[in-house]
Design a protein around this nucleic acid. Sequence first.
DNA 1: CAAATAAAAGAATTTTATTCTTTAATAAAA
DNA 2: TTTTATTAAAGAATAAAATTCTTTTATTTG
Lengths: 165, 165
Amino acid sequence: MLFKSISMENNSTPRLDDIDLRLLRLLQHNSNLTVKELGAKVNLSATPVFERVKKLEKNGFIKKYAAILNAEKLNKGLVVFCNVTLKEHTRTIGRQFVKDIMALKEVVECYNISGDYDFLLKIMVYDMKEYQNFVLDHLGSIKNIGSAHSTFVMGEIKHDYAVPI
Amino acid sequence: MLFKSISMENNSTPRLDDIDLRLLRLLQHNSNLTVKELGAKVNLSATPVFERVKKLEKNGFIKKYAAILNAEKLNKGLVVFCNVTLKEHTRTIGRQFVKDIMALKEVVECYNISGDYDFLLKIMVYDMKEYQNFVLDHLGSIKNIGSAHSTFVMGEIKHDYAVPI
DNA sequence: CAAATAAAAGAATTTTATTCTTTAATAAAA
DNA sequence: TTTTATTAAAGAATAAAATTCTTTTATTTG
């Protein structure tokens, strides 16, 4: 067969084998490992490791590479989980809320959740005074927030920065 | 002065200037930027960028470099926040709980928190059935858990993987 | 079993990180 | 101020890593 028709192209992402998974596990704990080092751990030479990693990137299994910073040292040691409800639940109001939240740099994570509240926010600030300012100046000025309930992190027990594969 | 006495050594970590902060911001969004690329963004040549980044690593501002994976594609798309209380709050029981939690790979984050609950867990699994199994087989078998309340993530609005600096 | 395909290896090349040396800028002392 | 240290940046040289290319080895399939 000389030519493949478009419809015959395989668009589905290929299945990951054991080595791919091991590479992903290694990289999510230390993305500075060289292809040579990775190869030593999975019993391959640099080339196939390189090609596998590139494929994992291309197929979207790896979203990006990031430096994980020390929040304490950067004066953002106070972590707060804030549950909020909206007064109304129309699409437009929801959209505006999302837009407002996206603009707040202190909000590092935001989830739409089940249960008594609508959203769960993770907020990082220096201290309680800064959190108070955040609530009063920023969160408080967002329209349509019905209620907000803050839970303070007293200690971080575990934080993997990793998908459990 | 020929020699410095030990007591004169400066053990405190040096203050970060504006360029350091910009480098940290850039690196937490993309740690694959080369020192040359970083230099272009902060108006420095490769060498000082290299030295600054090494210093940031050495002084602990950068904890590690990691690949951020796509949880959905890796079949861990169901995120659950689980609030738990302990039956008793002695040090030994707390320690045992922490130890047990550390062993559960599905628990990707765990915080000791204020409020009605003692701990907040972030759990990643494939689907509801897998979550049920997790609760029954793993969480359920941990001693001294008083109550557990699950909140399900319906949508991820924002997730920076970054300290807001 | 032979042909075709895919995966891995090894060598060659390019790019990047890293080191070393020189120069410029800044701060401290005279 | 001027001189002298000290620090930061730059540029050139080197080492290490990524990336590409070619060959070899496995695997699959007809």
